[in-house]
Nucleic acid binder design. Structure first.
Lengths: 229, 229
DNA sequence: AATAAATTCATACGTATGTTTTAAATCCTG
DNA sequence: CAGGATTTAAAACATACGTATGAATTTATT
């Protein structure tokens, strides 16, 4: 772990496969990419794919989770840090939202293809991913729902769930947009975009409920993450 | 148009194919559905698919456009009607948003599988659809952008474009959510959901800009609809 | 340098794909 | 009823798919 410069050849191959898979799966979807095309794009022998990952499905899962895990971890870290600094006070909504969004944006800057893969995967998750997706998302979702509930006591939980789903849709679209502009990195602009994304989402989340009673039945956030789905 | 009961056999076959394609393409994506599976699910002979549509791509295009055209038409009709009633005054933002959202919601109620197909298609459009998608969306988009510009003169056009993309993401997610709850139709609840979707989106669109200068460069709305893409 | 383990390679298997074809049925319209 | 349009069945087409195999080669360890 010490010297990151030297790597076994096998690690290079596996990483090339992951990077290529991230890009191609993001662009064409799981079924839109064949193992031959993938191996060729990664400049790797076809058999190396099964040697390193065993199957196409596993390669997809590992490609997705590799960064998704890190992003979610960073989310919870940011939220925890903000919580610590607040000394028990409810956090401002925009701050919570920023804890949600910033890791996505950062990941998108560092790895332009990743957000497209996320959008595809969350909007229409392959069935072989359901379980691990659920396991990955649930704890984080709970953290943020809790934070929002404390920050927005006037918004009923059911409505909050709906709004969080809408917010998720906005972030996904934002990620797709980001990966579409292959513009050279410009920290000023990136910060501006993040700010606007946060503003938009926080406004929606914090707006006064439009409906009075319990006309809104339970609508859990991302449908594909429900246990019964 | 008078007696809807009687139909030519050929029309029945083609419609069964379209309905089945809508459901299966929405669930598994273009590459996730084979013609044999599709024909079988539609209880139609395999050769009938090429007889009626010529190719899988054409079937996808026609499946998608069949309702998407109608939805967009309804959007522009609602907006035009609202404009007519406003006597030259800028429309309230929530009203414009409702003109955008209502047709999607109505379509989702009548045809539960459709919105999933829309979400998939708009978030990651197959390349053979780019052209017709662009042609279908551009005029409508212009109408609504114009309406929003009049209603929100304090929001710069670039920012408005970004926010519209985020709003689109929210609607897509909303549509996916809707098709996930296969709950029996309840007009009261449906109206409540629509109201909340409108409230969320309008709040985001109308919020005060978070950035001061021209740090936001041009960011055209849906990336896949740009001419250069 | 020798041995063992890890990795790469070309090739092949069985199956599935979208599409086409042929021929015989069945339907609808004029 | 005649005749064209539509549907069916079955088979074949070339191509692509995910995966497996076993030998060749590289890498690591002694």
């Amino acid at each position: 772990m010490a010297a990151a410069g030297k790597k076994h050849q096998s690690a290079v191959t596996a990483q090339r496969l992951l990077d290529t898979a991230e890009r191609l799966f993001g662009e064409h979807g799981y079924n839109g990419v064949g193992m031959r095309a993938l191996a060729h794009a990664a400049r790797v022998n076809l058999a190396a794919t099964t040697y390193h990952f065993g199957s196409k499905k596993i390669l997809y899962v590992e490609t997705f989770l590799r960064r998704f895990r890190a992003v979610n971890l960073r989310r919870s870290e940011l939220l925890a840090a903000a919580d610590r600094a607040a000394h028990g006070q409810p956090l401002p909504v925009e701050l919570i939202v920023e804890c949600m969004m910033r890791p996505s944006m950062e990941a998108g800057i560092e790895h332009p293809a990743f957000n497209k893969l996320v959008a595809r995967t969350l909007l229409a998750p392959p069935k072989f991913l359901h379980q691990q997706l659920q396991a990955e998302l649930e704890p984080n979702l709970k953290l943020f729902i809790g934070a929002f509930e404390r920050a927005l006591p006037q918004v009923p939980t059911d409505l909050l769930n709906l709004r969080l789903a809408l917010a998720l849709g906005a972030v996904l679209m934002f990620g797709v947009q980001m990966s579409a502009l292959k513009v050279k990195r410009d920290p000023r602009r990136e910060a501006a975009f993040l700010k606007e994304l946060v503003r938009f989402t926080a406004s929606g989340l914090a707006s006064a409920p439009a409906t009075v009673g319990a006309e809104l039945a339970r609508l859990k956030p991302p449908a594909h993450l429900k246990r019964t789905a």
